[in-house]
Amino acid sequence: MSNVLVRAAQGLSLAEKRIMSACIAKLDSKRLPDPTRPLVTRMSASEFAETFGIDTNTAYDELQAGAKSLRERLIRYEKPGRKGPQIVEMRWVGRITYAKGEGWLELSFWHEVVPHLIALRDRFTSYKLSHAAALRSVYSWRLLELLSQFKGTGLLRIGIDEFTHAMDAPISCRANFKDLRRRVIEPAVQELIEKDGFLIAWEAKKSGRKVTGLEFRFDTNPQTSLF
């Protein structure tokens, strides 16, 4: 996906993130967009269960719930404007079909999100879905995406506001760094270390007494190919 999308507030729960990522993974990333035809992908309950190591009944439940909620989920990001930042909001999907008796879900991606998913020549981020599949926190997944953007250098520097935006951190965590560290950063780092073999060291950057940014230095287990 595009780097813009990686750093956007994606507004997805863990179950919704699973559905969206599994459907994106089925796209032909080299395909050229066709403005006359919607970009559509289908995910069956059996595929979903196998990908994320869950039982079929859970897969049915998550797909059915996703069919109800994903239509309303928004992507939010800023872009430069003449008189200051412009706030952009767009949907993930334009249409969702769930075949209750057959156990599959079909997504038709919103036309404005399509350029962030296919035919990307530069400024994009990729990672193996299999390594995100074991994660049980959407914060861990979002941190994986942010780190993947800098896999070439092993160094992510990010402003605190941009980080909390990308992580969809709760309001209480945005106002209190101790809560952000305890509820978002430390659990996400620990899960990536335990489940994906990351080696991560991070620190808060301050201006005076106020935390203004974060720095993550990371590497991966040489026996594990994550990207």
Rank of each mutant, 00 (worst) to 15 (best):
residue 56 T to R: 14
residue 57 N to V: 11
residue 58 T to H: 05
residue 59 A to N: 06
residue 59 A to C: 08
residue 60 Y to Q: 10
residue 60 Y to I: 09
residue 61 D to Q: 13
residue 61 D to A: 09
residue 62 E to C: 09
residue 62 E to V: 12
residue 62 E to S: 08
residue 63 L to T: 07
residue 63 L to I: 12
residue 65 A to I: 08
residue 67 A to D: 06
residue 67 A to N: 05
residue 69 S to M: 07
residue 71 R to Y: 10
residue 73 R to W: 04
residue 73 R to V: 06
residue 74 L to Y: 09
residue 75 I to A: 02
residue 76 R to L: 11
residue 77 Y to T: 00
residue 77 Y to P: 03
residue 77 Y to S: 04
residue 77 Y to E: 04
residue 78 E to Q: 14
residue 80 P to M: 13
residue 80 P to V: 08
residue 82 R to F: 13
residue 82 R to V: 13
residue 83 K to Y: 14
residue 83 K to P: 06
residue 84 G to D: 15
residue 86 Q to T: 08
residue 87 I to S: 11
residue 88 V to Y: 01
residue 89 E to S: 15
residue 89 E to I: 06
residue 90 M to F: 03
residue 91 R to V: 10
residue 91 R to T: 12
residue 91 R to W: 08
residue 91 R to N: 14
residue 91 R to D: 10
residue 92 W to M: 05
residue 93 V to T: 10
residue 94 G to L: 01
residue 94 G to M: 03
residue 96 I to Q: 07
residue 96 I to W: 06
residue 96 I to Y: 07
residue 97 T to G: 02
residue 97 T to N: 12
residue 98 Y to N: 02
residue 98 Y to H: 06
residue 100 K to S: 13
residue 101 G to Y: 02
residue 101 G to F: 04
residue 102 E to Q: 13
residue 102 E to D: 12
residue 103 G to M: 07
residue 104 W to Y: 15
residue 104 W to P: 10
residue 104 W to N: 11
residue 104 W to V: 11
residue 105 L to Y: 07
residue 106 E to P: 03
residue 106 E to N: 03
residue 106 E to A: 01
residue 110 W to C: 00
residue 110 W to D: 06
residue 111 H to K: 14
residue 111 H to M: 09
residue 111 H to E: 14
residue 113 V to M: 03
residue 115 P to C: 03
residue 116 H to R: 07
residue 117 L to D: 14
residue 117 L to A: 13
residue 119 A to C: 12
residue 121 R to S: 12
residue 123 R to S: 14
residue 123 R to Q: 15
residue 124 F to T: 02
residue 125 T to H: 06
residue 126 S to R: 15
residue 129 L to W: 02
residue 130 S to F: 02
residue 130 S to W: 02
residue 130 S to C: 12
residue 131 H to M: 11
residue 132 A to I: 03
residue 132 A to F: 05
residue 132 A to G: 08
residue 133 A to E: 03
residue 133 A to Q: 02
residue 134 A to S: 10
residue 134 A to Q: 07
residue 135 L to V: 00
residue 136 R to Q: 11
residue 136 R to E: 08
residue 137 S to H: 08
residue 137 S to E: 10
residue 138 V to L: 05
residue 139 Y to E: 15
residue 140 S to Y: 00
residue 141 W to K: 01
residue 142 R to D: 11
residue 142 R to V: 01
residue 143 L to P: 01
residue 143 L to N: 01
residue 143 L to T: 03
residue 143 L to M: 00
residue 145 E to F: 01
residue 145 E to D: 08
residue 146 L to E: 01
residue 149 Q to V: 07
residue 150 F to P: 00
residue 152 G to S: 06
residue 152 G to P: 06
residue 152 G to W: 05
residue 156 L to D: 06
residue 156 L to S: 09
residue 161 D to R: 09
residue 161 D to M: 01
residue 161 D to F: 01
residue 162 E to Q: 12
residue 162 E to M: 01
residue 162 E to A: 13
residue 162 E to S: 07
residue 164 T to R: 10
residue 164 T to L: 05
